[in-house]
């Protein structure tokens, strides 16, 4: 093999790892005795690396990522409503088997998966508070114009994930049993715990399970606004503290309520009492209601696609119907 033949025919493919075994052997023989072509190969690989490094990958903007995830959720839901390929529908037997599978067994598997919400927590709450103090204008219903609130982004990400694939571990189905007993799955207890022999009531059973996990049980009642509880979920944040997720669904859409403890929360300096604070935001196409419960150091974030003014009305109605302490 001559130098010119190597350069014209094999150099680029050699640098790209595209040579056949026979070609590799042939160029190996040539390069073994040709320092010039060895240098050319090094130069070719350097150029490849430079192009890769300097004309490299561009990151997708965060808001575009969110939009795509939402569209993906819509597409998944649409497929369920009208499967385009009947051959790919789950077999009836599979569906029945899945339906018979104990719900808490599925939950246990789910609990081992990393939590989307895990990275936020106390620090996120602080960020929220900073954003509020820095960005709230006189209108009080908008998040800071161009600012990004990481806690809100995380909440929206969780909402988008849960809206489509919510796996409750304190759902209505877990409570009714053949013998008429009512069961709940409670974290750090036996996987199934009998809590009542009365007929199951989703709202009260979810509230009761939260209470068992030492979390606020005064969950929103959006029944008047047309939303029913789909289920509740008790999880843990990265620092091990509990967090509850309550999903509501109605004809108008869904609402996700996220509640977690923030022990760093403190009343404003000089205040003799703090009854809490509730604020509403229109943020990246979503409506968010942020509530502080100073008594137990809890933070609640509601996320929905509904317009902000509708969320304000619905929360006001839910406040009337809320189960008190």
């Amino acid at each position: 093999m001559e130098c010119q033949e190597y350069i014209d025919e094999y150099l680029a493919a050699h640098a790209d790892g595209e040579l056949s075994p026979d070609q590799r052997r042939a160029v190996g023989v040539h390069l073994g005795g040709c320092a010039i072509c060895r240098a050319r190969l090094i130069e070719e690989r350097s150029l490849k690396a430079l192009v890769r490094q300097n004309a490299g990958i561009v990151k997708v903007p965060a808001d575009v990522r969110l939009r795509i995830r939402a569209a993906l959720g819509d597409a998944a839901e649409a497929e369920l409503a009208a499967p385009s390929d009947p051959a790919r529908r789950p077999e009836r037997a599979d569906r029945d088997a899945a339906a018979r599978r104990p719900l808490f067994a599925r939950d246990a598997a789910q609990m081992r998966q990393p939590m989307l919400w895990a990275p936020i927590g106390l620090a996120a709450t602080i960020l929220v508070i900073v954003a509020i103090s820095a960005g709230l204008g006189s209108r009080g219903t908008r998040a800071p114009g161009a600012a990004t609130v990481p806690a809100f982004d995380a909440a929206i990400g969780k909402y988008l994930a849960d809206e489509r694939n919510f796996v409750p571990n304190v759902p209505a189905e877990a409570f009714a049993n053949d013998d008429g007993s009512v069961y709940a799955w409670v974290e750090n207890r036996d996987s199934v715990q009998r809590i009542s022999t009365e007929a199951s009531d989703v709202f009260n059973d979810v509230a009761r399970s939260y209470r068992e996990a030492n979390m606020p049980d005064d969950i929103f009642n959006f029944a008047e606004a047309g939303y029913q509880i789909s289920g509740g979920r008790i999880d843990h944040m990265a620092d091990g503290s509990p967090v509850t997720y309550t999903l509501y669904a109605g004809d108008a859409g869904t609402i996700l309520s996220i509640c977690f403890r923030d022990s760093s929360m403190a009343a404003p300096i000089g205040a003799i009492n703090w009854l809490g604070m509730r604020s509403f935001y229109a943020y990246k196409g979503y409506s968010i209601c942020l509530s502080f419960y100073p008594t137990g150091h809890y933070v609640s974030i509601l996320v929905s696609r509904m317009p902000a003014d509708q969320m304000i009305r619905d929360v006001a109605m839910a406040d009337v119907g809320v189960i008190g302490h």
């Binding site: 993906l72 998944a76 369920l80 899945a98 289920g231």
Partner: peptide
């Protein structure tokens, strides 16, 4: 409904 959501979730995941 729950089962359907889980199956939908499998493909999406």
């Amino acid at each position: 409904m729950t089962v359907k959501r889980v199956r939908s979730g499998e493909k999406r995941l």
